Simulated assay, not measured.
Amino acid sequence: MEKSFIPVSEIIANQISDMIFIEKKYRPMDKIPNEKMLAEELGVSRTTIREAVKMLVANDVLTIQRGRGTFVTANPDKRNDPFGISYLKDKKNLVLNWFEMRLILEPASVRLVAERASDEEIKEIVRYERETAQLIKEGKPYLEADKKFHSAIAKATHNKVIELMLPAIEAAVRDAIITAAYVGTDKLSAENALVNHRLIAGFLEKRDADGAALAMYCHIKRGITDLES
Rank of each mutant, 00 (worst) to 15 (best):
V113Q: 02
R116P: 04
N80H: 12
S118M: 08
E120G: 12
L143D: 00
I125K: 01
A213I: 02
R222C: 05
V57D: 03
V57G: 02
T48L: 07
L38C: 06
G43I: 07
S109T: 05
H150G: 01
A117W: 03
D208H: 06
M19A: 06
S109K: 01
D18Q: 13
I178C: 04
E191A: 10
L194M: 11
Q134V: 13
R116A: 08
R127P: 02
Q65M: 15
A171H: 13
M19K: 05
N192R: 14
A180H: 04
R198I: 04
E170K: 10
H150R: 06
K92G: 04
A201L: 05
P107W: 05
A181Q: 02
R130V: 07
R50K: 14
A212C: 07
N59C: 08
N34V: 06
L204G: 00
R111V: 11
E131D: 13
D175G: 03
G43V: 10
G84T: 04
V57H: 02
A190H: 00
S45N: 08
V61E: 02
I169A: 07
L96W: 05
I6H: 02
I224H: 03
D186C: 07
I6Q: 02
K31L: 12
F203G: 00
Q134E: 15
Y182T: 07
L38D: 00
F203Q: 04
N192S: 08
E138D: 14
V72N: 03
A156G: 04
G69I: 09
R198Y: 09
T47W: 14
A154K: 01
R222A: 06
R174G: 01
A168W: 11
S45D: 06
F203D: 01
V95K: 01
I32E: 09
A171G: 13
R50W: 13
I136G: 00
